[in-house]
Structures are given as structure tokens and as C-alpha cells.
Simulated scan of single mutants.
Amino acid sequence: MDAVVKWVEGDTFIGRSHSGHNVVFDAGKDSATPSPMEMVLMSAGCCSSVDVVSILKKARQIVHGVEVKLSAERAENAPRVFTKMNLHFVVTGEKVAENHVARAVQLSAEKYCSVALMLEKTVEITHSFEVVESV
């Protein structure tokens, strides 16, 4: 895998992935685009969400929505790395079994989510979830 990041101006950069997708990053405080650290946080959430959705589908759960609410703490001084991160999943569907959601979250955390598994070597990562019945 490879990628390229090109400086545009100020604190704005454009990343281009090996697959040809572009992402705009901005480290400025008043930016309309995510910072690199925000992208890392959202990448962990997306990676794990892909797993959770896939596992729940395979378990034949009727899922209408999955949202992961991410929170993180960073070190006070440079380098301002993440020290803690929580991924809280909100799964909406029809009669979705909590044990299936718990298993999906656990499998993602322990086996499948490469982003979170890489980060957990230096970040304390926790997971939580709730199931909301669709009406």
C-alpha cells in the first residue's frame, strides 16, 4: 500500500490513496476539514463499524443503522498522542439481540479492526454499545 500527501497552502494538505481517493486534511484551528488526528480517530470508528455491520448481517440481525460515537483523550504535551479512546456503538434495528452486538463489537476489537488493533499498542481503547429498537 502506498499514498501521497501534498501540501496545498497554509495548514492544508491533500492525501491521495493508492486506490485513487483524495482526502483533504487541515491542521489549522478554524478549518472546515478534519485534522490528521481527527482522521485517525474517525478511521478507528469506521474500521470497527465495518466489522460490526458485517458481523451483524452474517448473524441475520435486522439492523437499520449503526453509529459509533468516538471520544478520545490526548497527551497534554507534544507529541500529543492519543492516550485513551472509547468507541460507543448505537445499533438501531428490529429485535436486535444484545448478545450479537456484544459479540460483534468484541470480535472487531480483538480480531478484525486493524486500525484499533494497531493503536491499542499505545492507546487505552474501550468499547461500549447500546441497542435501540426501531419503530
Rank of each mutant, 00 (worst) to 15 (best):
E76Q: 10
G65M: 07
A32Q: 14
Q61C: 04
S19W: 14
S35C: 06
S108W: 00
I125F: 05
S43W: 04
V91L: 01
A44K: 02
V132D: 13
K57D: 15
L70W: 08
L56H: 00
H127T: 12
K6E: 12
G20C: 08
G20E: 04
V115Q: 04
V131F: 04
S43M: 06
N77G: 15
S19C: 15
V81T: 08
K111M: 09
A27D: 10
L41K: 05
A78M: 14
L87E: 07
N99D: 10
K58S: 09
N86Q: 08
N99R: 13
M37V: 09
F82P: 02
D26N: 07
P36S: 14
T122H: 10
M85W: 04
V132H: 08
E38H: 05
S134Y: 12
N86W: 03
D30W: 12
A44M: 07
L56K: 00
M39Q: 12
K111A: 06
V40Q: 02
D11W: 11
A75F: 08
T83A: 03
F13K: 06
G28P: 00
I14R: 08
S108E: 02
C46E: 02
D51P: 01
G65V: 06
M85N: 00
S114L: 01
S134G: 10
S71D: 02
I62S: 15
E98I: 11
V52S: 02
V101M: 00
S108M: 04
V115W: 02
L87T: 03
E76G: 10
K57Y: 13
E110S: 11
V53H: 02
G15A: 11
V23L: 15
V66N: 01
A97M: 11
V52D: 01
L107T: 03
V91R: 00
A72P: 08
A3G: 07
A102P: 09
E133Q: 14
F25N: 02
L117H: 12
F82A: 03
K29E: 13
V8A: 05
V81G: 09
L87Q: 03
S114Q: 07
E110W: 10
I14W: 03
A109D: 09
N86V: 02
R60P: 01
I62L: 15
F89W: 01
E98H: 11
A32L: 15
K29N: 13
L41C: 05
V101W: 00
S108N: 01
E98Y: 10
V105N: 01
Q61A: 03
K111I: 09
G10N: 09
S19T: 15
A78D: 11
A78C: 14
P34H: 06
V105G: 00
M39E: 12
I62D: 15
V8N: 04
V53T: 04
H100S: 13
V135Y: 13
S43R: 02
K84A: 10
V50A: 10
G65H: 09
G28W: 07
G28H: 08
D2Q: 11
Y112R: 04
V91H: 00
I125K: 00
G15N: 09
K95S: 15
S35K: 08
D51K: 05
E130N: 13
F13R: 04
S35H: 07
V68Y: 00
K58H: 05
K58Y: 05
E124T: 12
M118D: 14
T83F: 04
R103S: 05
S54Q: 13
M1N: 13
A72N: 08
T122P: 06
S128Q: 11
T92W: 07
